[in-house]
Simulated scan of single mutants.
Amino acid sequence: MTKEQESILKRAIDHYGIDNQLTKTVEELSELTKEICKLKIAGQNFNGADLIQARQNLLEEKADVYIMLMQLDLHFGDSLAYIDAKIARLKERMDESED
């Protein structure tokens, strides 16, 4: 994230408070979940226009979730070490299943 983005996100935490931002994170995660379900339904119905709209909605909600997660990183610390370990574990599981 840029310095300007970081400044805005820190300001949002200060302005709204971490408790409200945690609630907002849950809300945004729920909205992303809903859009994922809609995307799957649109794909099953083979309706091109619905599929395009569902994809756009998913991308927008994903952006909202990402913004909230960046705020959590700023407040609680980043998750990079956890991400690295979980990706390594994922690789191990996939490697084992290919044997």
Rank of each mutant, 00 (worst) to 15 (best):
R55F: 09
N20T: 10
L39A: 14
E31A: 07
Q5W: 01
R55Y: 11
N45T: 10
S7H: 11
I8Q: 06
Y66F: 14
E4Q: 13
H75T: 01
I87M: 15
F76A: 05
Y82G: 11
N57T: 11
N47K: 15
N20K: 13
N45G: 03
L90Y: 09
L39D: 02
L32H: 06
L39Y: 14
A12V: 09
T25D: 02
Q53D: 15
Q5Y: 05
D84A: 12
E60A: 13
E60Q: 12
D78W: 06
A85C: 07
D95P: 00
L51G: 05
I52C: 08
E92L: 15
M94N: 13
L51Q: 05
D64A: 08
D14K: 10
G48S: 08
Q21K: 14
L74T: 00
E28C: 02
D84Q: 12
L22F: 04
F46E: 14
L74Q: 00
L90T: 10
I13K: 01
T25S: 07
E35Y: 05
A42I: 03
D84P: 01
D99R: 09
S7A: 10
L59V: 10
I13S: 00
L51F: 15
S7C: 06
A63N: 14
L58E: 07
M68P: 00
S30C: 07
I8H: 02
Y82H: 05
V26I: 14
L90Q: 15
K40C: 14
Q5L: 10
T2R: 08
I67Q: 07
N57R: 10
N45F: 08
A12C: 04
G43D: 12
E61M: 04
D19A: 11
A81N: 11
Q21M: 09
Q71R: 12
E61H: 08
E4I: 07
Y16G: 00
D78N: 13
G17P: 01
A81G: 04
A88F: 10
S30Q: 10
L9K: 01
L59D: 05
T2E: 08
Q56M: 07
I67L: 12
Q53A: 13
R11D: 13
A49H: 10
K24W: 01
T23E: 15
E92D: 06
K24Y: 06
Q56H: 09
N57P: 05
K40E: 09
N20V: 02
Q71H: 02
T2N: 05
L90I: 13
K24R: 07
M70K: 06
L39Q: 14
R11C: 03
V65S: 08
A85I: 02
D14A: 05
L72W: 03
L72Q: 06
K91P: 04
L72T: 03
D64G: 02
L69G: 00
Q56N: 12
A49V: 14
E6P: 02
D78S: 13
I8K: 05
